[in-house]
């Protein structure tokens, strides 16, 4: 199976199939990410559409040494923030400078993802999901981005640091602060 980076390179050379495979791999993740960031289904859809358009437009400037997922989430986050700032402004404020999102290409560390946790810890329901989505919106954007990228999207602290352009220590601190604030606002739902 081809890596994301190989597919991106093929797309840069004009392969439609390569883009379709990248789309198949990431469109759900991008929509979920945008929804967690905005808490609004319509905005999430628009932001996700715009993210893929920007990925396609920025493909010529993409550096093959960068991890595709990190680069894409950088675009997705900026696009989503633009929608949050002014949903009427189609997100044209963001530009992605060439080579800005560099990466070392090393494999991401294995994280104990949500599936490893006991699903019985929370009696999940649509109502609780709405509560969680609303609680996320109460977080400062810098905390929300870090926590969603790590817990929601499965990025490592190092990858989150790359997406947000901050240090790993800052990521660690933001995620911890996000957890504290969410535990406070959702305390009655927690075990």
């Amino acid at each position: 199976m081809r890596t994301d980076e190989e597919l991106m390179e093929l797309y840069r050379r004009g392969s439609r199939d390569a883009f379709e495979m990248l789309f198949a791999r990431y469109h759900r993740k991008v929509i979920h990410f945008a929804y967690r960031m905005t808490g609004d289904e319509a905005k999430a859809e628009e932001a996700a559409q715009e993210t893929f358009l920007r990925v396609a437009r920025a493909a010529p400037t993409w550096q093959p040494t960068a991890r595709f997922s990190t680069w894409m989430y950088t675009i997705a986050r900026r696009t989503t923030l633009n929608f949050l700032r002014d949903e009427k402004d189609e997100g044209d404020k963001v530009s992605i400078p060439p080579g800005e999102e560099s990466g070392d290409g090393s494999p991401a560390p294995q994280l104990p993802g949500p599936s490893a946790l006991n699903p019985e810890e929370i009696a999940w329901s649509a109502e609780i999901q709405v509560r969680f989505a609303a609680a996320l919106q109460q977080l400062p954007e810098s905390y929300r981005s870090a926590f969603v990228l790590n817990r929601g999207e499965g990025l490592s602290y190092e990858e989150v640091a790359s997406v947000l352009g901050i240090t790993v220590q800052a990521v660690k601190s933001r995620i911890f602060r996000a957890r504290e604030m969410l535990m406070e606002s959702l305390s009655e739902l927690l075990p």
């Binding site: 469109h27 979920h32 946790l117 699903p119 996320l136």
Partner: peptide, 18 residues
């Protein structure tokens, strides 16, 4: 346990793909 539950909850915040 509560920290893990928060992470689980956020991961389950999803929406349908139109």
């Amino acid at each position: 346990r509560r920290m893990r539950a928060i992470g689980t909850g956020v991961a389950r915040v999803e929406t349908d793909v139109p």
